[in-house]
Design a protein around this nucleic acid. Sequence first.
DNA 1: ATGAAAGCGCTAACAT
DNA 2: ATGTTAGCGCTTTCAT
Lengths: 346, 346
Amino acid sequence: MRRKRGQGSGEGVTMKTIADEAGVTLTTVSRILNGKGDNYAAATKEKIQEIADRHRYRPNALVRGIQTGKTDTAGVVIPLEPYFSDIVRGIHEVFLFNETLMMLSWNDHSKQIPNEKLERDILHRLIDRRVDGFIISPSAESLAQNYIEEILPRNIPLVLVDRELEGVETDFVGSDDLNGGRRAAEYLFSLGHRNMAFAGEQDSAASSLREQGFRAILSDMSACNCGERLDPSDEEEAEGFLEQFRGKNPPTALFCSTDDLAVSAMNVLSLAGLKVPGDVSILGFGNAAWLQQELPLSSFDPDPMAMGRMAARLYIERVNGTGPKQLQQRRVPPTLQARSTTAPRS
Amino acid sequence: MRRKRGQGSGEGVTMKTIADEAGVTLTTVSRILNGKGDNYAAATKEKIQEIADRHRYRPNALVRGIQTGKTDTAGVVIPLEPYFSDIVRGIHEVFLFNETLMMLSWNDHSKQIPNEKLERDILHRLIDRRVDGFIISPSAESLAQNYIEEILPRNIPLVLVDRELEGVETDFVGSDDLNGGRRAAEYLFSLGHRNMAFAGEQDSAASSLREQGFRAILSDMSACNCGERLDPSDEEEAEGFLEQFRGKNPPTALFCSTDDLAVSAMNVLSLAGLKVPGDVSILGFGNAAWLQQELPLSSFDPDPMAMGRMAARLYIERVNGTGPKQLQQRRVPPTLQARSTTAPRS
DNA sequence: ATGAAAGCGCTAACAT
DNA sequence: ATGTTAGCGCTTTCAT
């Protein structure tokens, strides 16, 4: 067996050490140090506490973990990139007040091919250490199988953040895309725009929700209309996209489901000689940090820190068994950041 | 006692479960699943393995931890801000190949007053969970006491990254500031500059090393000279700083010990009508990400990911007891990023 | 007001 | 080629 650590203070000090020194049993020490010693003589309590402090005694959470089945440790699997690290910061903030610590890991998000094997290995490492639950931001759909096979059957609480996974029945915390879409419409409407366009990718759940909310409001408003979804960054669709702005009575505002699309759109439009926001107001979604210095794009900030906080709160509910029985879907309303690519209709 | 988890597959499956099902003892299962079963009959080995797989058995690392005194888990205390999260990514990369996981935490780096109590609490949480060691990027000098009292006496390996702490005798991994300073001098010299200036803060260990390296090279070169250290962002020193550039035969190059100083210097110089790099070449240190889009500042990239990797490797050596006995000081040479604020002397 | 004893899931020394 | 036993550090029932 591996040697325990050397002989500094606080090392190798167990409840037994303290019990022996105080001339009482382990049980007594355990109860007193855990605040369950109401019945004990004040003198005993003080003595135990004093010895513990003097030795800088620290309880062994591993043992407590195997005894109680709870480790107060979460498995957090999130890439450490700008946007995501804000999610982690939000989680951390809530954990601070819940005696919880996170084991952090992630799979290489930068590689296009997600490494299923590697992620499964990471999950195993986390499960072996008996984390109470998981908070995961899945890097790809293809990883769903991992969660379905490794986490759910073991009945370990799992909260997904930022991205849902088809076929994985679990809690989810993300951005309120529907709400964002609605407010995009309301905002552009309030600037006087009536004729609008929408740019979005195909096959993106988030993008669809944003579009849905956007159109829902527009169809409630009178005298509003909006062209079909098109992707200015897609070779096939770019031409059609531009076409909309060439007819008579062209759109004066454009809502893009991501900031990337907003940038593509701006490029396409400016090549065609259109001014932003003079001729067309552009509103994005994502509030990408890399953008803000280059280009003052009006956009929705999904508030990743708030998402992290919300995910952590849900996690705590799950791990403690408080909170509702049904699976939760909680969404943080994005914050509108009006900058200089949107303006009143001229 | 808290209920163990419910009844899904892989839950509550222990070696005992497997042993019973196979009609052998715990020991047999333990040995076979740990690859120490060379002496066992192939049939037994296969049977055990099959049962384990079928039940999706996973070993309990908590138990292993209390038995062996090793948890394969590191306590990492680093703020999750841009520069630092790259350090964390470097650490993570190395841990992936060492069966190690990190418990990540940090104290609120944004608050000016570092919360000593909070950080001590975090260290306790980590110690209770019996991390094998620590990798810490201290947010303030005032926290030194925490490490001295809580970590060192317990003989827990501690590697400091990015920032050293006076009075804390421990391993350190950081940027090679001396080397950076030297190469700054060599680079500016190679561009033809002979008359130089240096901007740096007072009381910064890193800044002093950069200055030291810088001056060491200059004094080796013939016909070179460099004014005294001044801080253009300091009200008292700004005037003197500018004064240097007003004499006859003024400096044509400026090395700043941080990118922030480089920005201040540029402002001061441009107010005085001097052109960069036409009149003065400016070289910074830090390669701050927020800068790169605004201003193509020539600078040294301290390569935080490499620092993280190096710290993790040293950590692994410490935890495994391999590696040298003496305290280590390892430094990553920064990478020169020549952009457009430096040019040949005109 | 305190103790004794069983047990958590596993490892490792010591058998046979 | 496999089993027996003690023990890791603690919590929790059941005594007294």
